[in-house]
Simulated scan of single mutants.
Amino acid sequence: MERTGSDRRRRQHEATRDEIRRTARALLIEAGPQAMSVSAVARRMGLSGPAIYRYYAGHDELVGAVIAELFAELGAAIEQARDDGPASPAERLPAMARGLRAWATSRPVEFRLLFAAPIAEANRAPESERQRAGEHFDELFLREAEALWAERPFPVPDLREADPGLRAQVLAYTERKGTSLPPAAVQVFLTCWTRLYGLLVMEALDQLAFAYTDPEPVYEACIAEVAALLGIAAGAAPAGDVGRRS
């Protein structure tokens, strides 16, 4: 009986944590990151501010939990885009890149929180929920690049000719990730990722409007450039694939 009561309290605790997180996310969508204050969440739920602290240590931990949930959803969308297509890594990577943009354009507020908002110091800690979720997301494209390399190695630069500071950072990233890619291939991977990521962030922040009224073909051109670096074909985007919200 004692264990049953303890299990029930634990389930209730987790259910309340989930409700707090969902409420914070609703406020995010309605009014942006600044709306996700502990007091605003408490008011929306009919609780006192201090009551929230029984479930989350503070604002940073709550935001980190929302971000972790978003990373999981984005990762699932990219995995679906990968798995819905052909089996070859050469064809999966462009599909994953398109899946990334489809999610980003259908959830612009959430995407900006993930990739274009400052990260609180508490959420940079390796053990934080946000950091663990971010690391898992980061590895989705990295593991696919590893599969591509195993199947058909792509051209790589000579890192001995690279700037020493750049080379040191690439070597450190390679070691930290424990990837099977050689460091020179890691540099190609990081170049590809930062190009796609940077363009998407510019779109999310409405920083492309100075030149482009339709960012989709701009992103498709970027996919083609990245694919060329990887020695693969970009293929064509499936009709109706961009901007879906599921």
Rank of each mutant, 00 (worst) to 15 (best):
M45D: 04
Y173N: 13
P50C: 02
R244L: 09
A90W: 01
L229W: 00
Y219P: 15
L27F: 00
E220M: 05
P33E: 11
D18M: 08
A76G: 06
R98E: 13
R132G: 04
R3A: 09
A117C: 11
V188T: 15
P217W: 00
E216A: 08
A117V: 14
E121N: 12
Q169C: 05
L166M: 14
T174E: 02
E30L: 00
I78P: 04
A233T: 05
P86K: 00
R22N: 10
V218C: 00
Q207K: 11
F115P: 11
A239D: 03
E146I: 12
A117D: 10
A51H: 14
W193A: 04
V188L: 05
Y212R: 03
T179K: 11
Y173E: 14
I29G: 07
A122Q: 09
R245L: 08
F210L: 10
P126K: 01
A224L: 06
V109G: 00
A211E: 15
R112E: 03
S246H: 06
A51N: 11
E203S: 11
F189Q: 10
E2M: 11
L93F: 04
A102C: 15
E19G: 08
P86L: 07
D158T: 12
A204G: 15
I232E: 05
R3Q: 11
C222W: 13
Y197M: 13
A65T: 05
R22L: 10
L100K: 08
G240W: 07
A122T: 10
F71S: 06
G46V: 06
E91T: 14
V66P: 01
G49H: 14
R167M: 07
R10C: 07
A42R: 02
A150S: 08
H13A: 06
I119S: 08
L148I: 09
A125R: 15
L28H: 10
L208S: 02
R130A: 13
L171I: 04
Q187C: 13
R10G: 09
G46M: 03
A234H: 09
V66S: 01
D83I: 08
L199H: 01
V188F: 08
D18K: 09
P238R: 03
A31D: 01
L200Q: 09
D138Q: 13
V186R: 06
A81Y: 06
A147C: 01
E139R: 11
A162K: 07
P157D: 12
L196K: 09
R82D: 01
R107T: 15
N123P: 10
L100F: 13
P50D: 01
A184V: 12
R112N: 02
V170D: 15
M1Q: 10
M36T: 15
Q12C: 08
R245D: 04
G243T: 10
P238T: 04
S39D: 01
L100Q: 07
R152L: 02
D214P: 15
M1L: 05
F141W: 13
Y219N: 12
Y219I: 15
R167H: 06
S39K: 03
T194V: 14
A239Y: 02
R244I: 13
G5K: 04
V186C: 09
D214S: 11
